[in-house]
């Protein structure tokens, strides 16, 4: 990427996408030629419920500007209830970050079903715009933590 300071800040966002729903939506979004920002680097996981808050923290501490976890809509989880359990964990994580003033808004959880490619693209737009607004993740450059 160019180091040109005048260039608009382009965040790097780690995406944890569920294999069954969100990743399917991502595929359809692509094949429908929906245009959406490039900032999310997706890791395809089997279930949103397998995303450990530690993975989220690790991404933020390593310098990701945001993290998006996306999975099946509530009730649609291929593994019955993984997304419900994830919802609680991410709630705890975001509460901790919020309490400590650590920009909990950098962590996103979204439900995107397999037939929701427009929502997938919209979510990409939404999360990218929101993280852009937040600016670079200060943890990314903090060497002393």
């Amino acid at each position: 990427m160019s180091d040109n300071d005048n260039k608009e800040f382009e965040p790097t966002i780690i995406g944890y996408f569920c294999n069954w729903c969100t990743y399917a939506a991502a595929d359809v979004a692509g094949s429908s030629r929906l245009q959406y920002p490039h900032n999310v680097r997706a890791i395809r996981v089997m279930c949103s419920g397998s995303v450990d808050p530690l993975y989220v923290l690790r991404a933020l501490f390593s310098g990701a500007d945001g993290v998006l976890i996306a999975g099946c809509r509530p009730g649609d989880c291929h593994y019955i209830s993984g997304n419900y359990k994830e919802r609680r964990r991410i709630l705890v994580l975001k509460t901790i970050l919020e309490t400590l003033g650590m920009e909990s808004d950098r962590v996103w959880l979204r439900w995107v079903g397999a037939s929701e490619s427009p929502k997938f693209a919209a979510t990409m737009n939404e999360v990218t715009a929101a993280i852009k607004k937040l600016g670079p993740n200060p943890i990314g450059n903090a060497w002393a933590i």
Binding site: L54, I96, A142
Partner: peptide, 24 residues
């Protein structure tokens, strides 16, 4: 990436993770 790195690493990450694990 950061220019420098405090070692041992991940001291704050450790506490945050413990908060995640044991906070409830």
């Amino acid at each position: 990436r950061k220019g420098a790195l405090r070692v041992p690493t991940d001291t704050l990450l450790f506490h945050l993770t413990r908060m995640n694990h044991m906070g409830t």
